[in-house]
Design a binder for these strands. Structure first.
Lengths: 230, 230
DNA sequence: ACTATGAATTTTGAATACAAATTGACGATG
DNA sequence: CATCGTCAATTTGTATTCAAAATTCATAGT
């Protein structure tokens, strides 16, 4: 029996994971407002599950930094402060840079081909103004690089940390000039990857990230002002 | 009211956290053998708690990568493979290097004083052959650097990743020559810190870590051979 | 004798029930 | 009138119970 063909991925996932995913989505989309207290009872009735798996899901999200658990006081959605963003940024930068370097060591020709395809998509989406699709493709390129790095630990770290800032993306709206610049940066990133120039790729990714965070910072700041004025 | 003095940390910690800590210790000390299946019932009777908090604790440890949870098949202690170690190493390296750089930006004179004290302890413990104490002091220096970096996110990342390899330390026994070399490296590290030379400190920490991992790799390899021969 | 099938036991997954702690309000007292 | 203390109601933390899945052992068939 050939072993790569049969694995029959009968993924029977436990309920708490399912729940965690849904909650994650809700938090990222800000359907659950940052800072708001989460009542277990309410969510239970809303999802039609008992408290046990819900609590397990909340514990999961707590380790991911999306919710805060205070003893006897329940869970609340963590709010993204500019301060926290300042702390997250350098860590993500280090991880991205590492991912770039490792990716260049392990990337296959097929992956480079795929990256080129994705880049073409990205440019098309930019031209047609498809912001939503652009975000998705962008995410895919990002994931491709991490996948090419062939380091599960790194991937996991990156996921857990980027989960915390991902919801900020939903608040931030790309300006046209920034969008154009981002596409250009992606072109350089693709170039470095296909040349397998790890050092350069790492640097580019870090810079790209820095620019991304500038946008986030701005959006977050605007959001804060809006919140305090109301 | 001065704000660093009153916080009255009447830490009323929930049971599952307490449990998680105990279990962590057990796993690190290899009291729970790597790869062994964990029976919820057994642990419940052993700790004299019900299954609910225990399960919550296990979920926590799962996100930390210390135990593996398979649906309907329970929890098992993850085993540390050399392969995983190869993956962890570069990530930790990147984090340590970053910590070094940030530490030099924020470190206070008082912290440097304390680092010097710890270094003196370290050398004394080396001289007197107090391996146990050496490990502890070593850990403290490490923590001091991360504390000086003033980045909670970075600290958290580092803790979660180093937790996975910490138990390997209990298996690895330092050779006299390696021990002496490590002390010397620490001297250089202290020097870079007190000069606030971030770039150099980052590099030194990364190198130091690389050497540490060499020892772990060896120990792990020896352990593997021992396991396969029996 | 060995393999395969199936029932019984064991173990995990989820729900409910019970206990402890916190919050808010109301009343008493200075 | 303000402040403190006490009590009730709500919510979280933990235990227990019920259901579903998996492992194991025994039996039957080849």
């Amino acid at each position: 029996m050939k072993d790569g063909l049969i694995p029959a991925p009968i993924a029977r996932r436990p309920l708490h994971e399912e729940l965690a995913e849904h909650l994650r989505q809700l938090i990222i989309e800000c359907a659950l407002e940052p800072g708001s207290k989460i009542s277990e009872k309410d969510l239970c009735t809303q999802f039609a599950v008992s408290r046990t798996p819900l609590r397990e899901a909340l514990k999961l999200l707590a380790t991911e930094g999306l919710v805060q658990l205070t003893p006897h006081r329940g869970a609340s959605v963590t709010e993204l402060t500019t301060e926290e963003l300042e702390h997250i940024f350098p860590v993500m930068g280090a991880l991205e840079a590492l991912a770039g370097e490792l990716a260049c060591l392990h990337v296959t020709d097929a992956e480079i081909e795929r990256a080129k395809k994705l880049q073409a998509e990205l440019e098309a989406q930019h031209k047609s103004g498809d912001l939503r699709g652009y975000f998705r493709t962008n995410e895919e390129i990002h994931q491709l690089i991490f996948a090419a790095a062939q380091n599960p630990t790194l991937t996991q770290m990156s996921r857990s940390i980027s989960g915390r800032v991902r919801r900020a993306r939903y608040m931030a709206n790309l300006s046209p000039t920034r969008w154009a610049a981002a596409v250009k940066e992606h072109r350089a990133i693709l170039m470095a990857l296909s040349k397998r120039d790890g050092e350069r790729l790492g640097m580019l990714l870090k810079e790209h990230l820095a620019n991304k965070f500038d946008v986030l910072r701005e959006a977050l700041f605007a959001d804060l002002k809006a919140a305090s004025s109301r």
